[in-house]
Design a protein around this nucleic acid. Structure first.
Lengths: 229, 229
DNA sequence: CAAAGACTGTCGGCTATCCGACAAATGAGG
DNA sequence: CCTCATTTGTCGGATAGCCGACAGTCTTTG
């Protein structure tokens, strides 16, 4: 993979693949790069963001709040992913919060510039379409998890997916150095904080995982994965 | 709205807006139109569909099955919407079922043709992008409903949205002539059939709605809407 | 128009999970 | 190293909603 494409790498697709150099220069011109510390908001609901964001490094969580303090984390994005109001139609602003999880490097550009860029490069637009299709698929997956699985399975599903994104695999074991708080996991899995604590300790008791406040080890990835269905 | 654009009307966006006539002719050439009766499958999981579909008339439900007979309906699509494997990346086929709810008119075209068409028309592609953004938003909405609301509110939410799509508004009352079975509503709201029956009868008892096996009347739309939060 | 099949209504028991409460453990900052 | 704030662990009570069962009602079709 070339430097250029590595830069804009997307989990499954590189949206800038096949883009010529002159265009890449243009892209970098209309883009503002910013380093953002951990646990900082990028945009808030009711504060309609006029920008589209690319995540170059780090991770960002997208969540929604409810009137009472409850929260649900819709998705965690990794390097290369895009967020912001992709459908320019609405004006009301999003109901989403975007917030960094760790130190992140974010490129932003105006919706207008983004739109122009898409109009200018059919290939880029097509890649974006495919990527959005994948994102829709991810949401579908999460929705059916919510509908079909009990809390334990949802938490295991989460651990597996999270390990996939953040972990270092070594043999069958996966180690993750930046773990989330139980509350955060609760938001992700639509469970209560106490239940998360209990379930994690059950899994620890069965020797499937080990964890501290800021790290997680999955002893047998395949085995855990199998328990999620 | 011109005949042409009415033909391809999308709920919120007309993806063929601004398309010149010669291109529209081409579109119609690579497209196969078919009339499909009610409650017929369009594609099934593990039977990877090589096509992209446009819904011209009628309604289609997209759902997922679980090993045990359980089902969740992810979305109900109306005239003008697009479905199929929009992200061409995956080869495994979808886990989705697409099935007509009523008599439908569906246009299908091969993924390849669709992709070529998008490459050929940046504007079209951009419209598609916006539309997919809206679809993502709809999924987000459904996910937070699942996380935050109890069954009663989820059912009310469903009624309101369904009435919006299918109903005829007259004053403050909405009448819907093609209502779903309680089981179907259960699948949509991730509830059990019995609970749906009970909740609907509670709402009837409070004079908010009336229903028979195949019709629904909402007496005061605004009032019901307010109860969903 | 009769018989079979599908849908609706209702009940009672059951259980997963939430929620409040509080104590213990850990970590951060002065 | 002490203090305060945050996170984790555990318990018991409350309950929403699931599930099986079964009866009643409507629909379809031969």
């Amino acid at each position: 993979m070339s430097e250029k494409s590595k830069f804009w790498y997307l989990k499954n697709i590189n949206i800038f693949d096949g883009m010529d150099d002159s265009r890449m220069k243009m892209v970098e011109k209309i883009t503002t790069m910013s380093q953002i510390g951990k646990h900082r908001p990028i945009y808030l609901p009711e504060e309609p963001s006029k920008n589209i964001y690319f995540l170059k490094e780090g991770h960002v969580k997208l969540s929604r709040l409810h009137e009472d303090g409850r929260e649900i984390i819709l998705d965690i994005l990794g390097p290369g992913e895009i967020f912001g109001e992709l459908s320019i139609v609405e004006q009301g602003g999003t109901k989403e919060i975007a917030e960094t999880l760790d130190d992140a490097l974010v490129c932003s550009m105006s919706k207008q510039d983004f739109e122009n860029m898409l109009m200018d490069s059919p290939l880029l637009n097509l890649q974006l379409t495919k990527w959005m299709g994948l994102r829709l698929r991810r949401f579908e997956e999460k929705m059916s998890d919510l509908a079909f699985k009990d809390v334990t399975k949802r938490i295991i599903s989460f651990l597996v997916r999270y390990a996939d994104d953040f972990g270092k695999m070594k043999g069958g074991t996966v180690h993750i150095s930046s773990f989330l708080s139980h509350q955060e996991i609760a938001y992700l899995t639509a469970a209560s904080r106490q239940t998360v604590t209990t379930v994690l300790n059950e899994l620890k008791g069965k020797g499937l995982i080990d964890f501290t406040r800021k790290s997680l080890t999955i002893h047998n990835f395949k085995e855990l994965q199998a328990l999620a269905r």
